[in-house]
């Protein structure tokens, strides 16, 4: 059965975030609020990484190498969004991540909010493909990598669909790579989480259709949780459209669910 591999030190997992850092990410997340989208996204990712670290430091053994983590930003440039001791590193172990936040006061921080430049999403997906192909080759028995792309707009460096398909074709013995997409927006209207068909998308919205097409189906465990919390259907995909902060948070928690170590899920 696919997506059944438990994550442990012998078979670590990999989660890569592609974060839109274009100029429009500096605009407000919600009409009337002072919080830019870049800040809201960075807050959510930093919280999630904190949870990852804490989940890997339980028990009596100190921190366990359960994950490789990557933060790729795309805006003025495409590349690692990590700073300090981890600057320019595309993938780092959870152990290195735990030991090298930019600051821990008031809360641990690895990703700073940035909003500048264009939206080279195609370049980011291309880089993700190179990194994940290498990772999958080195970890053939692991749970397949999860790549989560968070953006507020369309790519302006070309249609990324061919590269997304290539990314999704990567695999380990436990299944194909999971590529999930989150569109964040300040537009009014309800967020659309984990749709399972084109009919659920906004009518005549080519951008939504493209992101849906690029998004992998949820794993059985993720689907179970998405169904329980959001009524997701049988073929639900890892896609969120018109997300606000709450929807982004919910999406990230389900989209990064894997079975870890002994019994608990992250």
């Amino acid at each position: 059965m696919a997506y059944a591999r438990r994550i442990d030190r012998a078979n670590p997992g990999c989660i890569l975030f592609l974060v839109d850092q274009s100029g429009s990410m500096g605009f407000e997340m919600v009409h009337g609020s002072a919080t830019p989208k870049s800040v809201a996204v960075a807050d959510q990712i930093n919280q999630l990484l904190t949870e990852f670290v804490l989940a890997c430091t339980g028990g009596d053994e100190g921190i366990r190498y359960y994950f490789d983590i990557g933060l790729i930003g795309y805006g003025e440039r495409v590349g690692s969004a990590l700073e300090g001791a981890l600057a320019n590193r595309d993938l780092v172990s959870i152990v290195e991540l735990a030991d090298n936040p930019i600051t821990t006061t008031p809360t641990p921080l690895w990703l700073r909010p940035v909003g500048s430049g264009g939206t080279p999403m195609r370049g980011a997906i291309d880089l993700a493909g190179q990194l994940m192909a290498d990772w999958a080759n080195r970890h053939p028995d692991s749970f397949p990598p999860i790549v989560i792309n968070i953006s507020d707009g369309a790519a302006n460096d070309g249609d990324p669909r061919d590269l997304a398909a290539r990314l999704q074709s990567l695999k380990t013995l436990d299944g194909e790579l999971l590529f999930f997409n989150v569109n964040i927006s300040a537009r009014p209207g309800s967020p659309l989480l984990f749709p399972s068909s084109y009919e659920q998308l906004p009518i005549n919205d080519d951008y939504a259709a493209m992101l849906f097409e690029m998004s992998s189906r949820l794993t059985p465990d993720q689907l179970k949780e998405a169904s329980r919390l959001h009524g997701a259907g049988a073929d639900a995909r890892g896609f969120a459209f018109n997300s606000d902060i709450v929807a982004l948070r919910q999406f990230l928690r389900i989209g990064t669910m894997v079975t870890q170590g002994d019994e608990h899920t992250v």
Partner: peptide, 11 residues
């Protein structure tokens, strides 16, 4: 059986 994701669960 200490929960693996909680702190010092063997203790």
């Amino acid at each position: 059986d200490g929960a693996g994701t909680s702190h010092r669960s063997g203790l």
